[in-house]
Amino acid sequence: MEAALGLMRRMPPKHTETALSALLSLLPRHSSDLLSQVDQPLQVLCDIDGGKEFILCEYNRDADSYRSPWSSKYHPPLEDGTQPSPELRKLEIEANEIFAIYRDQYYEGGISSVYMWEDDNEGFVACFLIKKDGSKTAHGRRGYLEEGAWDAIHVIEVGPEEDGTAHYCLTSTVMLSLTTDDESSGTFSLSGSIRRQMNMDLSVAEGHLCNMGRMIEEMESKMRNSLDQVYFGKTKEMVCTLRPPAEITQMRMPES
């Protein structure tokens, strides 16, 4: 399992799906571990009831069907598909509405979905997903990129309430890929994912949604900085180590 995750850290991010399916066929016994620990680019389906799009992931899957957060129905239809308790479903509906506003404000478009389910130790888990396509062909208002995708996955484990507080453990992954292609500079592609974790004990006085929302908001802001640093900072640093920019070489030229 450790070796499998090691491989996933090295394979080109654009081949994540191929790499994962190869590992699944080699290690069928670890399939559920692999599926939950390896993040894949998010896929989308359309809800048959409302026509609204929703995001697919491990957490709304049962057999080969996926539950829509809008109608709570499985696509393709599945009898006896797992459903959250009525109380949790209520929170899920609310979370979806609010998260859609959040997504609209920060992302100006895109698709979001929130899924919740009970866990084994009296708490629950919530998964917040955002998908935004920024490519030229997408409906986004600014299509500068040949290809550009942003997938964010936030999984929050919420512990049972004790003395008015609860423990929240947030694991977030952002997958970002972008490609530009033009005559003068060829193809330029940056892709990958970063993952971060945050733990907090918070009072539940204002409700779980507020706490979870603020954690996600803080995390996304931190991750934007990390992405900026890693994608555009670290890889540029590497390029400049390999072949330092012209000014430096020119400065050295008179000596040679």
């Binding site: 404000q105 920060y106 550009g148 972008l178 555009f232 540029k236």
Partner: peptide, 21 residues
């Protein structure tokens, strides 16, 4: 190399504008 550097200058802005605020 210059065009790579230009990509690095323009992309963060474009990317984050395209994908998120």
């Amino acid at each position: 190399l210059g065009s790579l550097e230009a990509s690095y200058t323009n992309l963060p802005d474009n990317t984050f504008k395209v994908t998120i605020y």
